[in-house]
Nucleic acid binder design. Structure first.
Lengths: 187, 187
DNA sequence: ATTTCCATGTAATGAGTTACATGATTGC
DNA sequence: GCAATCATGTAACTCATTACATGGAAAT
């Protein structure tokens, strides 16, 4: 099967409750958005494919609140089995692509202030992300206090939090280095 | 121009010295491999395109040591200008895709031991990466002690090092959580 | 003898985003 | 009245890996 992880991301979320494509998109951004993303262009065709294979099943076809009709999908037993079978498979790590580090690597050729500006932008983004992680942790801990999956969800949030903290520490160090590049970085 | 960063990665490396596609591939893995990668399928066509635009220029066409002939490319003034113009452009962050965190997020459905095994594998990989960063830092600091770009190179290595250290800390915490999921993670 | 490394290139395949088309409803 | 949100879907396009084809030379 091609793109097994994308399919199983949808299956995993549908194991929580039946949803339509639009719901899935929103939930993805809120829940697993900091380490996974799917666009509409992926979600809708994938849902059709999953339905064709019997891993999800079209549920009610409601026109909630007079809006355009929503096609809700529910996971099937086959879908749950597929999810369970996928979890133990070895994870493949994606080839990294960090444009900030790439530009910094060639930073000697950049006009004055360029590198600093990129890092400052990165600091803002990282700070925002860190704040979001903390907020989500608290909201989730309260709203889903007794949910059996809560510890797993918090684990992934902790990852984001700890990496973001490390990035902020690096940012300060890097800005210091750029002020006096001759000194380099002591090991 | 499509794929500007991939092109500029090659231009940046060619600004160090003229190289053939094979050299570039090797140097990419050694120098920027922990945050950027290019496959042969990208490198060779890109080199042709860059040559057609006059950003690189085919240099000697030698059959070094009796091997198959190597097509060496050198960066041109136009290529240097393109690189310089690209550096200040805003960096775009790639959509993250971390299969380990995805599987952990749905970890409640996994057979016993699955999550632990994934994290253990991640620990080994991260430990190896950390060791590699430290080695490269030392080698580079000695071999290129007076190179004006050394501080920039070390900066990117530091990033890898600090993030890897944070990941190792998270790993230990996460393994602890998996032993007693009821306790969750205190904030 | 056989594997590994050097060296270049193309074709097939797979992802995955963005833009577009459509249209109702809700809030400002 | 207008923008934003809800809702689904397709088409075009970009990006990138993998596999394949070729073949000499060096190392084991």
């Amino acid at each position: 099967m091609p793109n097994e992880s994308g399919r199983c991301a949808l299956l995993g979320l549908l194991s929580l409750k039946p949803m339509c494509g639009y719901d899935l998109r929103r939930l993805i951004q809120y829940s697993i958005g900091h380490f996974w993303s799917e666009s509409f262009g992926q979600i809708y065709p994938t849902l059709h494919a999953l339905a064709a294979e019997g891993l999800v099943r079209p549920a009610r076809h409601t026109a909630t609140k007079g809006n355009r009709e929503r096609q809700v999908y529910a996971i099937t037993d086959g879908g749950r089995a597929t999810l369970k079978a996928w979890l133990p498979l070895p994870t493949r790590t994606q080839t990294p692509r960090n444009e900030l580090l790439l530009k910094l690597f060639f930073g000697v050729h950049a006009p004055p202030g360029t590198n600093e500006a990129h890092i400052q932008k990165f600091r803002e983004d990282t700070q925002k992300a860190l704040t979001a992680y903390c907020q989500t942790e608290q909201q989730l801990s309260r709203a889903e206090a007794n949910h059996p999956e809560l510890p797993y969800w918090l684990m992934t949030l902790r990852y984001g939090r700890m990496v973001a903290a490390a990035e902020l520490a690096w940012i300060d160090e890097a800005l210091g280095t750029l002020q006096s590049p001759k000194q380099g970085m002591e090991v």
